[in-house]
Amino acid sequence: MAVAADKVADAKKVHDQNDLPFDILSDPDADVIELYGLLFREPFRKLNIALPANVLIDSSGTVVWMRVSDAVQDRVDPAELERVIRETLGS
């Protein structure tokens, strides 16, 4: 599931335009993003921005892996993500 501080209408646009198989969740007031400690308040245009982060949670509800970055260009390598998923979930 992807989470960003956008409104539901924006989430729908991104979801439909890219034909994504997963849900895009909207957190426009960034409350959950803040709860997760991932909130960056951009001071000049007063935007709430979620730090790029990936959190892998197993079916028992425990975080088994996470990666947080402070640069938007820093995208996790899909191969690394695949390896992590396979190793931590053993599937």
Partner: peptide
């Protein structure tokens, strides 16, 4: 979610792993 349905992390407990991807938006 994008359809306005309320989705909870708790819904997935016992059902399978979840990957949360936070992005700038």
């Amino acid at each position: 979610n994008q359809h306005g349905q309320s989705i909870s992390l708790a819904d997935y407990r016992g059902k399978g792993p979840v990957l949360l991807v936070f992005y700038r938006g």
